[in-house]
Design a protein around this nucleic acid. Sequence first.
DNA 1: AATGAAAGTGATACTGG
DNA 2: CCAGTATCACTTTCATT
Lengths: 154, 154
Amino acid sequence: MDEIDRNILVALQENGAAGLAELAKVAGLSVSATAERVKRLEERATIRGWRADLDPNAVGCTLLAFVFVGLRPGQDEHFHRAMRRLEAVLECHAVTGPWSYLLKLRLADLRALELFVAEHIRGLPAVERSETLVALASAKETAILPVAPADEED
Amino acid sequence: MDEIDRNILVALQENGAAGLAELAKVAGLSVSATAERVKRLEERATIRGWRADLDPNAVGCTLLAFVFVGLRPGQDEHFHRAMRRLEAVLECHAVTGPWSYLLKLRLADLRALELFVAEHIRGLPAVERSETLVALASAKETAILPVAPADEED
DNA sequence: AATGAAAGTGATACTGG
DNA sequence: CCAGTATCACTTTCATT
């Protein structure tokens, strides 16, 4: 993984539909050499897949919320499985601090959030307590990772 | 936006590199009709773009952290601009509760986190106080949105 | 590993139904 | 919206360095 691979990854995060010709210009290589590098990055699972990036509002996911969860002891595996099955739960992280987990949810509206938390979070025997934060506005939301170790921000 | 469009969007979130032929089978339409629908979804910006989905660990973003930020009054615009410029800041949301903002960060390691927060978050005049949570493990992390209003989770 | 060219595949556009 | 065709672009492969 060298500078060229990193440039390719930057480009493919911004535009995954760019052709190899365009990508080759970014990389400073021929088309075939570029194709090989992309293939290698896929095989090594540095590139996990290719996704359409959707506008949440356009698909009815208007509301973004974060939920802190406190779990009863020994219930983590059950909880993980439950979270993985719920499409509205985009993320589920064990975190430092007074709470066991932090969830990121996308739902239609406040009513849907209320129902969802009551039924699928607080309704779980594994869950002892929870606290919900609603996002009021988002200044930034991206899945684009910094590919060069981001010590050097401008 | 009907059931067919939603099926297409589900498929394209899972595999954005699927060809039109495969997609047409999912949609239950001909290739040409499928191609038109995808094009329409792009024009309407329901599909915002196409991205390579990278493994964070493979590109040196080992550490995931969340940072709560309390801002001094009237500094929001400055703060937004600052956050947008920082690649390590993947998300920046105004949230309900005692804090003004919740940030999601990806960095190389704890040392990088410490330096980053000191310099780029707490170092800002706009920032009054902050609190950092480190993700210890992630049971789930996806950008795949539920396309049908997710009232109906199984 | 990279190049350049040749060969194969799939997307795009247009016709008519 | 479907089927079919033609064109064009892109990916893939291979011989060569």
